[in-house]
């Protein structure tokens, strides 16, 4: 019973062990009650109830006021690599393209302006580099996850 999840961009392998009618990992254990609720006992002896729901590949877990979104990675696969492509964080419309292919940009420099949910969002360079390709122009509609432009690291 091993599962792999993506947590903040890193893959984490979780190997479960059957113990006292429940499942355990890293000294924490969980049982599931008749209504499918998760009853947790943490390694420090404290206990709590967790809410969990799976949407797509992502397990959403809430416990003690905290919410976690854990993407399950199919066995053998690793988390998707977007490379240096800058991806639309949500569906929207490109208002402005501030760079073109071949431009050099500095870290933090705005490269595109995206309008979504009635607000403007700037797509900024995470690091200094050279713009390799710009895939959309102002006025274009983009879907969530669309690669907007590609940036190559300056070495």
């Amino acid at each position: 019973m091993q599962h792999r999840f993506s947590l903040k961009g890193e893959d984490v392998d979780v190997a479960l062990v059957r113990k006292n009618g429940g499942l355990s990992y890293q000294g924490h254990s969980v049982t599931v009650d008749a209504r499918g609720r998760l009853k947790l006992t943490l390694a420090d002896g404290s206990s709590c109830t967790a809410h969990a729901a799976k949407v797509g590949d992502v397990w959403w877990v809430h416990m003690q006021g905290r919410t976690f979104a854990l993407e399950r990675i199919e066995p053998g696969a690793s988390s998707q690599d977007h490379g240096d492509g800058l991806v639309a964080p949500m569906p929207g419309k490109i208002l402005e393209t501030l760079v073109k292919a071949g431009d050099t940009v500095e870290a933090g420099q705005p490269m595109m302006v995206l309008e979504a949910m009635k607000m403007e969002h700037r797509i900024v360079a995470a690091h200094a580099g050279t713009v390799v390709a710009v895939h959309f122009q102002s006025g274009d509609q983009v879907n969530q996850g669309a690669v907007l432009l590609e940036l190559e690291d300056t070495n």
Partner: peptide, 9 residues
């Protein structure tokens, strides 16, 4: 514990 919950789920 969250990873445990997700894996158990």
């Amino acid at each position: 514990a969250a990873l445990l919950s997700a894996a158990a789920g």
